[in-house]
């Protein structure tokens, strides 16, 4: 089966018929929902507030609806008028912008708490028209995306790279724009379920101040860290182990710890 990206430009491929077919397919609904939840897990946003989130390549709002359920406010961008029309028909809560992300993210600096994107950014690697330059479009995209995020804002983008070259192209453009992060691969052994998530942060969060070399007058007694600070300091392994504890307490079965627990599946860039 060929990939949609190879058949036609997105705004042509996702025409009225295809948009409706895509959106009403229960298997697709299920997969997109699962990936959205996983992206949210990777973002690890504060639960006690309503976040302001950009959904890139929002399509008909399958991912956005989950953001609404989470109590977050979102804005979606998509290049396909028919996908957006389907989103309107389904009365999604988020605002919708008709836009080509390869031309940049038209928001002022520091707008969003976080960015999510499900199954969309691989389209940027395509040269659909004769004057399209994927490299330039990727850079424009990541540069303006970086600016649109508040400091320390995070991105989780599931995507389908066609090959290692695209994987590299996307990661290096993100890096050039100033992002930190890398790619997380879920189910790397499964040809069918293997999923790529680009996970980025735009600088360090304000809360993570650097206390190195600071001398304080107060007696050096062990400061008790609050929950939030503990979370900030934990490594990925600590995080996974904490989540596993929580799951166990809730009576869910979790994988036994092994030497592979929380090992990165791909080097960071």
């Amino acid at each position: 089966m060929s990939r949609p990206e190879q058949l036609a430009p997105a705004e042509v491929f996702y025409n009225e018929t295809e948009s409706r077919k895509y959106t009403n397919n229960t298997r697709i609904q299920h997969i997109q929902a699962k990936m959205t939840l996983r992206a949210l897990e990777l973002l690890n946003l504060p639960k006690d507030t309503a976040n302001f989130i950009l959904d890139i390549g929002c399509g008909s709002g399958l991912s956005g609806e989950i953001l609404t359920e989470e109590g977050d406010m979102w804005i979606g961008m998509d290049i396909s008028p028919d996908m957006l029309a389907t989103a309107l028909d389904r009365e999604v809560e988020g605002d919708l912008l008709l836009a080509d992300i390869g031309n940049g993210i038209p928001f002022r600096a520091g707008t969003f708490d976080a960015v999510i994107s499900i199954s969309a950014i691989q389209w940027l690697c395509n040269a659909d028209t004769s004057n399209a330059d994927p490299k330039r479009r990727l850079l424009r995209f990541f540069n303006t995306l970086y600016a649109s995020l508040k400091r320390g804002g995070k991105v989780a983008a599931q995507f389908y790279p066609m090959n290692d070259n695209q994987l590299d192209q996307i990661q290096s453009a993100a890096k050039v724009a100033g992002f930190q992060g890398g790619v997380v691969i879920d189910d790397p052994e499964s040809k069918k379920n293997k999923k790529y998530y680009l996970v980025l942060s735009a600088g360090t969060p304000d809360v993570q101040i650097n206390l190195e070399g600071v001398v304080m007058d107060a007696p050096t007694k062990e400061r008790k860290l609050n929950k939030k600070q503990m979370k900030l300091m934990e490594t990925r392994k600590d995080y996974i182990q904490r989540k596993k504890e929580v799951m166990k307490r809730r009576g869910k079965s979790v994988a036994n710890d092994s030497k592979f627990t929380a090992r990165k599946r791909r080097p960071r860039f």
């Binding site: 309107l88 605002d95 912008l97 008709l98």
Partner: peptide
Amino acid sequence: KDSIPNFLLPPHLAN
């Protein structure tokens, strides 16, 4: 149009 702002750019203005 229909609540959706159109930010698509004509080719000569595309970045």
